[in-house]
Design a protein around this nucleic acid. Structure first.
Lengths: 216, 216
DNA sequence: CGTGTTATTGAAGTGTATCAAATTGCGTGG
DNA sequence: CCACGCAATTTGATACACTTCAATAACACG
């Protein structure tokens, strides 16, 4: 299975001095579950650093379906792709659970880059890894079946964050399939003793074989 | 239709001084059609700037199918994603037609970044746009049908480069489908007077309606 | 002039989306 | 605290677009 890297480290967190500088310029915001940090189409004015909680980047396709592009947990950064590309956001950022973020204005980011070139390189590396993840996702969408993608998603999401209950819909939006297919696949996995479902909860029982299931 | 941006400009090309520096360190290589610039799994040692010709980044999936991730023409750069992510290449770079490239060792690149921070930002922007393209491709894979993706691919590929004859297989590998489906779709498009096929050549007749066809 | 790649066509199978309808679970307000 | 209402879940039936496999034809290239 392609391991989707979970990078929880703060992109800015290395230098004590840097941390102090950030303290100066940051603006704290709180969002409750479902809250919208920014919307597709808006112009990026800066970056959002996730302090606590979990956010998803959600794109609505032309036919009205929602797809989850990326997930960002504590230490992660929101809004950098559009900011650096100098484009409007092409996805919305939504809090999956109660979330605290710090906003850093664009000028401050640029100033930071100027003062600490290593940070720029850090972002370069980060974007490069995101690009790989996205390209891998495309390939898997092509030549893996829905069950494999669901297995993969279960593994990834469970590792990514203890966000207790991923709904079947959320899993579907991450896996690139429909809610119904996720449900039927989970039923099948349960029959094979790979997972156990208690109400809405999903528990992975046999991680080993689930990994195999994601690969076949 | 999502416009996949064609960025032919050289990422390094802005400053005369920079150009001069590049001249110093570059190493020229030539590849004929089908030649392999680098292979998936190898460790990146630097960047390749495409001077003349056209290259594709091709990933072979677990089940043995080839998929075209990106295309890079004159002025474009090969191998930056893996270099910046500090990972082995996850795709191979292959010359689609006779191609001249310049190789720039990693140390030189880093030195360049150090000396000209704006160049780093240029790459940041470039990667950000590639990421968007990849995410868009994933979404389209999910909720567009094969004919729409073929239409989209025809438009993109014809704009991207006058690389005279894209084979049906190459189109399929870009569109995320099979050769047979491309063939049948082209036959359908021909019946609708959107394209004309003369032997292996494909000519777009009604660009307007083909764009519509990619959107439906 | 052969030999391998590319193109073409046909038949068959199947995985998944889609639609619809019933049920469960959860939060909220009365 | 219970009841209500809405969202999430579940199940079934149906349709069909696309892949897959196979076999032939056309073409390019050495």
């Amino acid at each position: 299975m392609e391991k989707m890297p979970v990078r929880a480290e703060n992109l800015f967190a290395s230098f004590p001095q840097l941390r102090a500088e950030l303290e100066q310029m940051k603006v704290a915001h709180h969002f409750r579950t479902g809250g919208i940090i920014f919307r597709a189409g808006e112009i990026p004015l800066g970056l959002y650093i996730v302090q606590e909680g979990l956010c998803k980047l959600e794109a609505i396709s032309e036919c009205g379906a929602a797809h989850t592009l990326r997930l960002v947990g504590p230490g992660g950064v929101l809004g950098y792709r559009s900011l650096f590309a100098d484009e409007p956001y092409h996805a919305s950022a939504i809090a999956v659970e109660n979330t605290d973020v710090y906003f850093i204005p664009k000028v401050e980011v640029m100033h930071l880059f100027h003062k600490h070139p290593e940070v720029t390189l850090r972002f370069l590396s980060h974007l490069a890894k995101d690009l790989r993840a996205a390209e891998t996702k495309w390939i898997h969408q092509i030549d893996k079946g829905a069950p494999q993608r669901v297995a993969e998603s279960l593994l990834f999401l469970s590792e990514k964050f203890k966000h207790a209950n991923w709904t079947r819909r959320e899993i579907a939006q991450w896996a690139g399939t429909t809610t119904e297919t996720v449900i039927r696949t989970l039923a099948q996995f349960e029959k094979e003793d790979l997972v156990a479902q208690a109400g809405r909860e999903i528990k992975i029982i046999d991680r080993e074989r689930l990994i195999e299931r994601a690969e076949i």
